[in-house]
Design a protein around this nucleic acid. Sequence first.
DNA 1: TAATATACGGAGCGCTGTTCCGCTTTGTCA
DNA 2: TGACAAAGCGGAACAGCGCTCCGTATATTA
Lengths: 202, 202
Amino acid sequence: MPTTSSSGEGRPARSARSKRADAQRNQQALLTAAAAVFVTSGVDAPIREIAARAGVGMGTIYRHFPTRADLVVAVYRHQVEACAEAGPALLADAGSPLAALRQWVDLFVDFLVTKHGLANAMQSDSSGFEALHTYFLDRLVPVCAQLLDAAAEAGEITAGTRPYELMRGIGNLCIGRDSDPRYDPRRLVELLLQGLQGPRSS
Amino acid sequence: MPTTSSSGEGRPARSARSKRADAQRNQQALLTAAAAVFVTSGVDAPIREIAARAGVGMGTIYRHFPTRADLVVAVYRHQVEACAEAGPALLADAGSPLAALRQWVDLFVDFLVTKHGLANAMQSDSSGFEALHTYFLDRLVPVCAQLLDAAAEAGEITAGTRPYELMRGIGNLCIGRDSDPRYDPRRLVELLLQGLQGPRSS
DNA sequence: TAATATACGGAGCGCTGTTCCGCTTTGTCA
DNA sequence: TGACAAAGCGGAACAGCGCTCCGTATATTA
């Protein structure tokens, strides 16, 4: 119970609730600014740039989002959530589990290739991006696992594929100089999915 | 003929050939130092660290290797060459073109996962790594193409796979926190190769 | 209105890559 | 052999970055 004063809950329900008005404003401004900057300069744009665009100081940005990953997560949370929720929906709607898996992976790839450098950042081994990596994967791996299991049970793919590994693999395939005509992540992901179906019986 | 003096070859064959003795020494020292540092700190270790280890100044390292990519290329040139030469050899020795392709890809993966962060650097879109990307791919893509063609002609894989894309894909799959037990690039590469064999006939 | 917790801003530190120029070494030629 | 360019060297210096820290300002409550 690390409460500063003695009488528990003495103060109006502030302590565990809303922050100061200006703090809320700034947080929102930061999210908006970051989203805009990410589009133009990628997710590893200079922190100063984001702070400047939001019209706040460096201290403020670090107080609200201690690591860059926190900021990225906050900016893209909605989209990740949407992707996660699409999993079960597709499983219900699509013709087969494999079809659902395919469509879902497509969604995920769309998300990744849209954000400059997001895929890179997710795998980066430097400067506190671990949180980013963790959040995305924690949220999406279970969804992927569900799709994988369903497809395996339907006999459409061989069992035993590790969802975590697959997700990282797909993420990795999406890394790269944006839109080099010679490199289309989608084709390789498709190859991966084909590989999932097991060796050719011939 | 950009020779300084008039009489062609007048000077002892210096002009177009060897550099000064100390320059050669330093270049060698830099290569050795870089190789050592790359092992411990990865390919994006601080330039200063490499210079210090080689016992030279900053200017020297930049004179010999204007970009970091030049240094990396120089350090790994032998191994890349070996990998390139292994292609035709495997094609002749291995049982089938597909087997050769498999073994060759294995070699390539071995090379990549051994060097900390090399795969990352190869795909990095920042700070003059393009040269690295270019060198590796220019050297290895033709070899890969040859293996791919042979396998396709033997009917072991579906035709039409783009060698460049495949190489980059494999490279990308090798990116990541070194030796996370949950992620083994090799398994995914295997999946990719399986996908190469085309959809399951079922 | 006064008091206090809360939040803000930005100067400053340390670490990078990269350039630039005065000094040193090397090879050559008389 | 000795002197003199040319070639090479070193590292100070500049710029850009992430991140911290603390004096100041402001919102909120009583």
